[in-house]
Design a protein around this nucleic acid. Structure first.
Length: 573
RNA sequence: CGGGAAGUAGCGCAGUCUGGUUUAGCGCGCUUGGUUCGGGACCAAGAGGCCGCGGGUUCGAAUCCCGCCUUCCCGACCA
């Protein structure tokens, strides 16, 4: 490709509306332009990179035995109603009515559709297992699109679905996809970690997220030297044994230096103080000496969860423990109803609803709890003596102070960008949509499913996020829009231009993906643009070197260059 | 949806507080001519604006007031 035949316009300055580095660079390097919030045009250079990522994905999916197909983006609403996700995913579904009044959903993902197809086409165990995939545009009505292409309302996903006759088959399919994902990310040269994660609305019980650590990542992950890696939402907390417990109970009761249970619960005034921070400051106790009482609605029924003041409740763990389909924070009205007091002053004492407590609170003494009255808290509250939860459970978010759930070593917390997610779905979709097969004995069973998603444009953004410098993007070769850029530094020089054209022709013959910067720009402009866009290799053709029949080959990554004979250029790249 | 910030030429910004010397500027980019030519050149001449939209106040509004729209950030949410 010749630069002047292309459609490239780089920007010298950062766009005003971009925050993330990858977003700024993608705009400046002429890869994308925003149409509206959450929707981006891929300019030719960006599309080229996107296609490269797709190529890598296709190759590895095909290698793993998956088969490509393409499903519609518009879905009849009935399928979504059948699986119940019309309600569950209501807030992200993009919907419209067609001229006949039929309601249409623009697909945010395709479990419903693929299961429907497979239910019609596959009937026998002989046709299993199957892994089907597509690369396609998805639509999600995101609450807040963010960071350019990292979280956009319209995005490109590779989604794959496996169908097996039994769980052993699912394990094999899952492993194949897991391995394929590792290969894909390795080929894209992304530093990633595969972590245990929560399946969320996808269903199933086990899932893995493929995460690329980055400061702008919207998810947090836990990593340990022992190899343990998990989403912060699922990382298990150990039962308090040693150090954690001692911090919890060592702090003194308000106004005393006493560790022993103080005999009387006292009601104290805490005017307008409902937050842990306010209350602990006011009463001069550590946040860890407070008990937060959180009221939830689990499938519509109120339930109280107690966690330590310095801990964050983990709704996923709670939801899993309760085996609830829906879990939400109760609103003011419900709280007033079940506790008798306003939000912010709830406490376990006198509560008539189910009470669960995080096990970091086991044996806590002289704690502070809400009094279920406005502007009142109770002090000197002791576990077991004054309140007794139905169960002590793991229901909080892991913190840096917690030991590794696997080896008890020191953990690290990191922000990360979710690039891919794999799920074991089981029969959740095949059951309701009737994707059944007949086994050898003629008995009908629902197929066992898995699903596997990868964000194609997120790979691009994440790659830039982890690989750039002050001058611009540093592409890994496999996903760079072009592998090589030829920079004739003075196109007015006929001889120089001719040589460049010849070299360009030879490289194309040699199947190199090359772009020729044939613009009549000054050298400096060409260097800046080449660095900004980040082509891995620059072939620089200048007048002085050319007289010696030499050109310069420079690699973007390390900035190192070598002078080589013109005849040897292709060999050296 | 709550909190914050912003919208002036293709891009990045100043001007708005304190209404009138503003015929609305600057830098980059763009056009033409010339000189340059290995790290975003220089000189000269140009083109390019519903000052986000609507209403109001005023002799007079980019500037003050009211309403709306859009965008970004933080939060809640999220395969």
């Amino acid at each position: 490709m010749r630069w002047t035949d292309n459609f490239i316009s780089t920007l010298r300055e950062d766009p005003q509306d971009a925050e993330a580095i990858s977003h700024k660079l993608m705009v400046r390097a002429s890869l994308i332009r925003k149409l509206t919030s959450g929707a981006y045009t891929y300019l030719p250079l960006g599309l080229k990179a996107l296609k490269k990522v797709e190529d890598v994905i296709r190759t590895e999916m095909n290698r793993s035995g998956a088969i490509e197909l393409l499903m519609p983006a518009m879905h009849p609403v009935e399928l979504w109603k059948k699986t119940g996700r019309y309600e569950i995913m209501d807030h992200v579904l993009v919907k419209y009515k067609d001229r006949h009044g039929r309601e249409i959903v623009l697909g945010p993902t395709h479990e419903e559709i693929i299961t429907d197809i497979v239910s019609r086409e596959i009937n026998s165990y002989k046709d299993l297992p199957k892994i089907l995939y597509q690369i396609q545009t998805k639509f999600r009505d995101e609450i807040r699109p963010r960071f350019g292409v990292i979280r956009s309302s319209e995005f490109i996903m590779k989604d794959a679905y496996s169908f097996d006759a039994d769980t052993e088959g699912l394990e094999k399919s899952y492993k194949k996809m897991y391995d394929a994902y590792c290969r894909i990310l390795e080929r894209c040269e992304l530093p990633y970690v595969a972590v245990e994660a929560d399946p969320g609305v996808m269903g199933g019980n086990i899932s893995h997220e493929f995460m690329v650590p980055s400061a702008i990542g919207e998810d947090e992950i836990v990593i340990c030297k022992c190899g343990y890696a998990a989403s912060v939402q699922v990382a298990g907390c150990k039962e308090p044994g040693t150090e954690d417990r001692s911090t919890a109970s060592s702090s003194a009761a308000p106004g005393t230096g006493d560790r022993r249970p103080t005999d009387k619960i006292k009601e104290v005034e805490t005017p307008d103080m409902s937050s842990v921070e306010d209350v602990s400051k006011f009463l001069r106790v550590k946040p860890s000496q407070l008990i937060k009482t959180l009221i939830y609605l689990a499938d519509g029924k109120p339930i109280a969860l107690l966690v330590r003041g310095d801990h964050a409740a983990n709704e996923i763990k709670l939801k899993n423990f309760l085996k609830a389909d829906a879990l939400e924070m109760a609103d003011d009205k419900v709280i007033q109803d079940v506790t008798g007091g306003p939000m912010g002053f709830s406490g376990p004492i006198g509560l008539k609803i189910r009470i669960l407590a995080d096990f970091s609170l086991m044996g806590i003494m002289n704690a502070v709890v809400g009094a279920n009255k406005k502007d009142r808290h109770l002090i000197n509250v002791n576990a077991d003596r004054d309140f007794k939860p139905e169960a002590w459970i793991d229901a909080r978010v892991i913190t840096l102070k917690d030991p590794c759930p696997r080896c008890a070593g020191k953990i690290e917390l990191k922000h990360a960008i979710e690039i891919g997610h794999t799920f074991k779905l089981g029969t959740k979709y095949s059951h309701v949509l009737g994707a059944n097969f007949l086994d050898k004995s003629g008995k009908s069973h629902p197929m066992i499913m898995g699903c596997y998603g990868i964000g194609v444009n997120r790979i691009l953004a994440a790659s830039i996020e982890v690989s750039h410098d002050k001058d611009g993007i540093i592409w890994p070769k496999p996903i760079s829009p072009y592998e090589v850029v030829i920079l004739p530094l003075n196109v007015e020089n006929k001889e120089l231009l001719k040589t460049s054209e010849e070299l360009y022709g030879q490289m194309r013959e040699a199947d190199l993906d090359v772009i020729l910067d044939d613009r009549g720009q000054r050298a400096g402009v060409k260097f800046k643009d080449a660095d900004l866009i980040g082509f891995p290799v620059q072939v620089i053709i200048g007048e002085k070197n050319l007289q010696k029949r030499k050109v310069e080959i420079k690699t973007r990554k390390d900035g190192k260059s070598q002078l080589v004979d013109i005849m040897d250029v292709i060999k050296k790249i």
